[in-house]
Computed example of a mutant assay.
Amino acid sequence: MSHVYQFEAESLAGRPVPLSQFRGKVLLIVNTASECGFTPQYAGLQALQETYAGQDFDVLGFPCNQFGKQEPGDAEQIAQFCDTRFRVSFPMFAKIDVKGPAAHPLYRWLTSEKPGVLGTEAIKWNFTKFLLRRDGSVFKRYAPTTKPEELKRDIEALLAEPAPAA
């Protein structure tokens, strides 16, 4: 079976992070940017993190500069922005490509598992969201215009499912 735990990503601090460390959790994976019209969604993402963190839930943020060059900063600048503007406590990862030939393997997998509108796989803009089940499979893909608070019902439904056998 294909699942998110087969991937590794680099943290914003430059350390490798095997995504298997999130095994058994409901995950919301989001490509982010600090100079986007959707950037205020960081507040909603942080609210979800705070609401559900004690229930085996995490938001994972992946900065990307592919859409209008809206994430121009380096890792230190991104970390400072997320902390000072939104008090982000969820894991943030190193800036990656989410589409095209240099797309991170995680995003190639996510987009093939849950294509977007009309079956297109490509990420169209910042703040595209993927909600994953506890078993590491992709449950649903959400458009950038979908506000984080609109995901609560789906998150709660996945949290209510039994954890997979180890």
Results as ranks from 00 to 15, higher is better:
T111Y: 06
R85L: 09
E161V: 06
K99P: 04
A122M: 09
C82G: 07
A163E: 14
L118Y: 08
V30I: 13
E121Y: 07
V30R: 03
A165M: 08
T39Y: 10
L118W: 13
Y107R: 09
K114R: 15
F57R: 01
C64E: 02
A165W: 05
F139P: 00
K95R: 12
L106H: 06
D97F: 04
G68A: 03
R87V: 03
T146K: 06
A143V: 09
A122Q: 11
F127I: 04
P105Y: 13
P115S: 08
A143Q: 13
E10L: 14
C36V: 07
L106A: 05
G100I: 10
V59C: 03
G44M: 06
L28A: 06
Q77Y: 00
D56F: 08
K25G: 01
A163I: 08
K25A: 13
K129C: 01
A53P: 02
F86C: 07
D135G: 04
P105H: 13
S20G: 14
D58C: 12
L27S: 12
K25C: 13
P164L: 10
P18A: 15
P115A: 11
P105A: 15
E35N: 11
D154V: 05
L45V: 08
F57W: 01
F127D: 02
E113Y: 04
G24A: 12
G119K: 11
